[in-house]
Design a protein around this nucleic acid. Structure first.
Lengths: 139, 139
DNA sequence: TTTGTAATGTTATAATATAACAATTCTACT
DNA sequence: AGTAGAATTGTTATATTATAACATTACAAA
């Protein structure tokens, strides 16, 4: 099997691509919708031996820190991001009907918000936008 | 004491301005920072008789539905909003140092996001943006 | 003044997340 | 190879956030 982008990323950065990390990322990547931490846990049974919440949360934190996973705060759920280079921002369109999520990849904070940040000399570390409603299929 | 904006809003709309609702809103309004539901609960002791979580969550839901309270998802905490007319969106700048929060009142979804919504014919009900970092005092 | 609806009270529990410390594994260095 | 130090994981327990379910009360309109 080919080396995944995430594994390669770890190799290059001198980070450890461990079994819990690999397994957790894999479950999130395979999920077609945002997945909760305890659902990740439930799906790890095959691959890890009786995993516990901290195992999942640590791996999630690790991947979030490197931009491979985002949290959708309004759902308490996680999604994989193809981009392994962490943007400061994440943006999602969430259908409250079918649960489908689309990630938007904006490279910059929108003008109106950026203006505020600059004005107040705020040192931004991260930002997120979450848009809820119904997708065209559900409405 | 003068009739509050929220009470007036309820009178005009034929909504009940009940004691739990009034008390919960008051606590959130008086808080200078986002306040968690259980902290609201703790501060209600004087005014309500042994309140329980559902009491708080119901009142919060009520006020959120009418735009008097917003939830900051990334903090699991709530803030009061002066505007009693619900915009679809809320935007916050959150200092991770001192916990201060500034609400930004954008009337419209930023262009780049709006474009996506329109393209995909998404029926938006609400949106939020949350910006984290350090305010000028904390950095 | 009844009658239906909305709101609240109450009990219990679900769902999400982290603290604390022990055990293990990996890496770098000798 | 052997070992010290650091990072990671294992494990137990518990904290935090939120809601389900049903009983009771208060209100508004006929």
């Amino acid at each position: 099997m080919a080396v995944s982008q995430a594994e390669q990323f770890c190799n290059e950065k001198g980070l450890r691509y461990t079994e819990p990390r690999a397994a957790v990322l894999s479950v999130i990547q395979k999920s077609k919708k945002p997945i909760g931490a305890y659902d990740v846990l439930a799906q790890l049974g095959d691959r890890l031996d009786n995993p516990k919440p901290p195992t999942i949360y640590r791996a999630i934190e690790f991947w979030m820190g490197h931009g491979f996973v985002h949290k959708i705060e309004s759902l308490n759920a996680f999604v994989a991001c193809e981009a392994g280079h962490a943007h400061k921002g994440s943006q999602f369109i969430v259908c409250d009907g079918c649960g489908a999520v689309e990630e938007i990849h904006l490279c910059h904070l929108p003008e109106a918000l950026d203006k505020k940040i600059t004005e107040s000399q705020f040192d931004m570390t991260r930002w997120s936008a979450e848009i809820h409603g119904l997708c065209v299929k559900c409405s």
